[in-house]
Design a protein around this nucleic acid. Structure first.
Lengths: 141, 141
DNA sequence: GTATTTGCAAACCCTTTGCATTCGT
DNA sequence: ACGAATGCAAAGGGTTTGCAAATAC
């Protein structure tokens, strides 16, 4: 089995787990996202470029719609860092991120170390849905 | 002195502290932001509406340009919560926020209590510019 | 065969910009 | 007067949507 075939099989299994039809485009995008078993933080544009670079073709609108579908299905989570676009993270739990301001890149921050103490109580009638933590990095001058 | 006059005076002093020319529009927006001495989290649209409601008129483009100028001057900080827009916060230090998802509103979270333990070290050659913490609230069902 | 998905282009929303006019000093 | 700020309308960038053609089951 080639690594490409393994990636594809992983992508298909990942889609199947969410009851999403394995169309050609979805399998391609899924294999680019989870094909090597590593966590990824992608933008729609990056994923579209990667898809095109792989030889196949997918329209940018489909990349957007598919990422939306993956998000709705709980396969990825959407992260917003600044107003200019979204990142989609294949790691699903609530964990902190590094944002490399100079490169516009997002990565996981070593979460095992970080913890928050004394998280404020949610106001009456409210639940804490999620705690977004983004550590902004800038090149040391 | 009426409260309106006090607000205006506060706005003017605030602008003066950043060497920004006290134009009619800037004084109006500044007084809406800091006129009562309380911290605010506003969107461009909210501020524009508030300005119009006060009787004066300012174009939306000027509200955007002015908020940008205030941000550049260090009078407010920009906070992004989701891709749909920016909030501008008159409180300048690095502190956590509540985001009321149902209302699209941002407010300060009781920061005195919260603290982060074991913040990951910044990678080599990088400085931590800022740590954004947004606690997303949802109505309890 | 039927419902879903895709692709394209147009629409959208928030934000910025170009340029002539007005304002602050 | 001079440079800076304003307003309008147009452009911009990322994302979504309408609808016809293609695809999955």
């Amino acid at each position: 089995m080639t690594t490409t075939e393994i990636s594809k099989a992983r992508g298909e299994a990942w889609l199947a787990g969410a009851d999403l039809r394995p169309t050609r485009q979805r399998v391609l995008l899924a294999s680019l996202l989870v094909g090597d078993g590593r966590d990824r933080h992608v933008t729609a544009e990056w994923l579209h470029d990667a898809a095109c670079a792989s030889g196949d073709k997918v329209s940018l609108a489909t990349v957007y719609n598919t990422l939306r579908a993956f998000t709705d299905a709980g396969l990825v989570q959407e992260i917003t860092v600044d107003g200019t676009g979204s990142y989609f993270d294949t790691k699903l739990d609530d964990h902190p991120h590094f944002y490399w301001e100079d490169e516009g890149r997002l990565s996981d921050a070593g979460s095992e170390a970080l913890q928050i103490v004394n998280l404020p109580d949610a106001p009456d009638g409210m639940d804490i849905a999620k705690v977004d933590i983004v550590i902004r990095l800038r090149a040391k001058r």
